[in-house]
Simulated scan of single mutants.
Amino acid sequence: MSPRAGTAGPHTLAFVESPVQLLNVLEWAHAHALGTRQAPGAGPASEPGAPSGLAASYGVRPSPGASGTGLSLVVLSPNDPMTRGQLRRMAELARDEGHEVRWEEARGGTAAPFRTVGGLAPLLRAARRVVLGDPFSRYVQLLLTITRAPDVVVVDDGTATMEFVSQLARGERLVRWHRKGGRPGPRDLLFAPVSAKARRRLTPTAGRSVEVFSSMPIDETPDGVTVTANDFAWTRARFGPPRITKGADLVGTSLVETGVVDGGRYLEAVRSLAKAHGATRYFAHRRESSDKLHTLAAETGLEIVRPDLPLELIARRGPIGRTILSFPSTVVHTLPLALAGTDVRVAVCDIDPSWLTETASPRAQGFLSGVTGTARDVHRLSSVAPV
């Protein structure tokens, strides 16, 4: 999957590893009027079996024809089937916007990282701007050490963006919030020089600008970093407005899978929340395990929905409940923006401290409370009691 013959490399090169990151790259490109119609015979490389005509099947309104320099978008594909499926669909939407998409089997065996990094190195050296969605990713940090791009952009990867900006402002090493508090492991120590170099690449200098494109509340802005608000204008322009049902929908979370919340406590909370608000559907997070979802369905009677696109697009397309119930997560910040102008109410339920596991990071409760407390245009629920 080499770049098109005869090109010196893209002006803007974006790296994504999740569907939400790809969505936010599209939002960033829309906000900066980046987009181009593809020339005949210059179609981008794609993963074998990728769907076609997706935009039409989802009822997406066509682009009015953005002009300017497009971007080359590199998907560093994970192995998780659900994530891969959503990424394939998002990649098709990106192509419909006129962006070039390059699919990399970045984790397909021991040699895959070396092959991927080697193949991307010429593009990285040629790019004038690099856009990335997860500054905590070791893969992305390694790629950052290769580029000399004078412009670096970080788009939202959910609530992790809040922690990234705070750590950058305080000059701390980059550590995901749910891992913070533990001692660095052998792999962390081995990778530390690469991580430190990547952090320097993410720090503005006289010859390098850094932009953070985010819908998250950012209190500590590092010196020299430009923060641009993501208001989900692309999503609202292309999808909906949705048909709204009378009931309530519940949004799942991967806090159990990341070891933050006890599985039994989570099941009790979902059961109580669904009963109290009359929820009938449970929109699963792409990282939730099949066994956990099977138990939830059996114990609560909820219909489990595995979204094939990020929830912001699913909700905007509809049908969606008049009330959306969520635990602290990215969607309590993004859904009110994506659903602006509708009558949908987003309600967030706090995480009770008793739900946390013994191995949860010492910062977990404070971070999750901050996610809830800083959300705008949401109704805040107290933590629910078991039924």
Rank of each mutant, 00 (worst) to 15 (best):
A198Q: 02
T221E: 00
S166T: 13
R243M: 11
S137Y: 02
S326T: 11
T145W: 12
V270G: 09
E312K: 06
P204F: 04
A29C: 11
P186H: 05
L311P: 00
S382G: 14
W28P: 03
D134M: 08
G158W: 05
G182I: 00
T161C: 00
F213I: 04
Y282E: 01
S195D: 10
R208E: 04
D291K: 15
P51M: 03
D308V: 10
T69I: 13
G118Y: 05
G182L: 00
I146T: 11
A297I: 09
L190R: 09
E172D: 11
M216N: 05
I351T: 08
R380Y: 12
A196L: 13
G118M: 05
R317G: 10
R243K: 10
Y139S: 06
R179G: 00
H285L: 02
A50P: 08
R271L: 11
R128M: 13
R170W: 05
A111Q: 10
T253F: 07
D343A: 14
L273A: 03
A66G: 15
R125S: 04
C349N: 07
L202D: 03
P222V: 03
G68M: 07
A14T: 07
P113H: 01
E47W: 11
D96F: 06
M82V: 15
G109N: 01
P40K: 15
L325T: 02
K180R: 14
G35V: 06
V348P: 03
R102S: 09
Q167P: 06
E100L: 14
G41N: 09
T83E: 02
L273K: 02
F164E: 00
L22S: 13
G108N: 15
E257L: 00
L23G: 11
L293F: 03
H294C: 09
V25A: 06
Q38C: 13
L124D: 00
D157C: 02
G70V: 12
Y282C: 01
G133K: 05
K292P: 04
Q38Y: 12
W177S: 00
A112P: 07
T295V: 10
P51D: 02
G41M: 09
P78R: 02
V256A: 01
R102W: 13
V256C: 02
R363D: 12
R95F: 03
A55G: 09
T205E: 06
S215D: 13
H285T: 08
T69Y: 13
L168R: 06
D80E: 12
L174P: 03
R125E: 04
G70Q: 12
